[in-house]
Design a protein around this nucleic acid. Sequence first.
DNA 1: ACGGCACGGGG
DNA 2: GTGTACGTGCCGT
Length: 720
Amino acid sequence: MRGWVLDCYPDMDADRMVLWFKTPGGAVRVVDDMTPHIYVHSSRERLDKLKNDLAMIGVKDAEREKRRISLGDDEKDVLAVPVREYASLQSLAATIDSWGRYREHSLYNVDLRMDQRYFLHKGLFAMGLAEIDGLRSLDAWRRIDYPVPMLKGLELGVKVRGTGIPTMDDPLISISANSITLDGPEDAVLEEFMSLVREEDPDIIYTDKGDSFVLPYLQHRASLHGMNMELGRERGERTSRGKSYFTYGRIVYKPPAHKLRGRVHIDREASFTYGEAGLPGLIEMSRLSHIPLQDISRLSPGSAISAMQVNEAVRSGHLIRWKKNLPEGFKTAGALIACDRGGFIYEPRVGLHDDVWEVDFFSLYPSIMVRHNISPETLNCACCPRSPLIVPEIGYRICEKRTGLIPRVLEPILNRRRVYKSMKDDPRKGANYQLRAKALKWVLVTCFGYTGYRNARFGRIECHESITAYGRDILVRSARIAESRGFEVLHGIVDSLWLHGGGDIHRLCDEISAEFGIPLNIEGRYRWIVFLPSVSTGVGALNRYYGLFDDGELKLRGIAARRRDAPAIVEELQQEMLQCLSQAGNAQEFIDTVPEALLVMDDYAAELRGGGVAAERLIVRKRISRRLEEHTRFNDPVAALRQLHDRGFELEPGQSVEYVILDSGSGRSWDRVRAAPFLADDGYDREKYVELVHRGAAELLSPFGWSFQRIRGRDGSQRR
DNA sequence: ACGGCACGGGG
DNA sequence: GTGTACGTGCCGT
């Protein structure tokens, strides 16, 4: 019998691994033995002593072996320590660690996921197809066009009695499961739902806020009736630790995960990847990272790339150091300045332009890592003291003998993304491929950030510096080539250039692509584009612009309409003004349309002053970074936090507070704003919202003489 | 004027 | 279980 690896986790009591396979006939549970090992590196003598010491505390069969302990290095003596009791792994590692004085010995393969260990040991992987009897893989994770199982999904939602912020104490009104709604007495509804899950036997349960509310809530309500809410195919959940406050309609800012056994719970709210790339994206990431679907759904793309790096390191014979140990090399003060410049940014030509091409490099930073072999072990390696491969500006040497770990991991990902993108119009598979490409895009983006992250396993700040150094070099030289071909460079950010006029854009892209070995693609041609000035300095703001492509699509960056804290009314205003400006086909027509856009603004101001705007369009949302008592200034978000506090709800850093402004200047929190859960018919601060609308308009039109001050003056004279 | 605070991207 | 750095704008003090 064959099936796909749907789930994999340790049975901590039996010290065996549990596997769930999805077969066309249903789900199959299998258990398998695995003894994880941790490794210690030290001198031979110390390892022998360690072996004896371990025997004294009952750990037998520790064996000396030769293994690779750092990237690109030769094999060293290590002691392989079998861990028979899964639950004791961390404490055993801590004990061994405590036996060594500073740097006397180091530990490996301690903080490896159990599922990943098992997969690497067995040659299986998550969502891969396998022969169930004998546990043999029938699949290869590198396959691009792989077989995907039919997975049965169940959409779970609850309706709760109560107003404002739902709590565990509110009784259940109904449960919805796909298109079915179960209602009636609470205990009957819960009972019915459990039997429905048993009968339907879904592979995936989808929720919104399942981790933070729905699942703990259902369990709590069931317990009140003496029932046990079991939603997995096996009893028990795999709940991670987490503090369980109940605030603002959800538990905590980092809720404990509620992972089922043998069945996948995907909490859309808790899954960045699902939101971006759906189930096809999750499956792609699961296969590449070897992390089960349910787990990868809750991890960031950064964790996924980290897992892929671990896989590659283990497959190429390396042990994984417990904590990262590549210290940042010595640098002089001058070198620090030269290195820390980040991505290159041209100063944009502020204002309006037409006939503009935007060109972007394909995954520039990952492509640089692959093409220039940038990896922690390839920079200033000991094996190539005379290497001619030198990073521009900062002069690091790059290994010319071996391909580094990071390029080995990235190369297939770049390739897959390219293939998926090229097949996005395939009538049968295109939609899925596009989602897979999206998931990979995020993996690639975060890989760069990870190289500079101090806790990354395979991070090294010099990689980060080298990548941006190459990036600047490539962008500056590309701009020069463009100029030599008759284009005017209007703006450039990291991997993109905006070019005006000139000759054959396709030939230019081909020439630059060939020069650097990285594809330069045409993003589009703008009928017009506006680069906005910085409000404070007046020179070009680096990342704030809006423009209209030839196909009628608008591209917006950095303006209120793109910001999550802007109230809907301001977003609508800007969108409507932009729709109005979209009638213009070139710069001159744009200028002629500006007065019409101002009339749109006036309509919004009048509507606000009329007092009839619905509260939902006025809600401001801010993410808070500290608790109420830690705030030193009294402002709108603090006022809203105080209201929630007054009613017994606390927000954790990382959560968002939502409110409507009632009286902007007030020093009393209940007069100043109204937190969204307590909204009644409170009205709003009409002049404050008019001001926000005027600011939103000025943000778009300041290059055309309509500064915020002038708009205010115009407003004043119109009202007189 | 200064400093606290929040946001951004890609499609 | 975890991407960073930093430019930008608003607003309270």
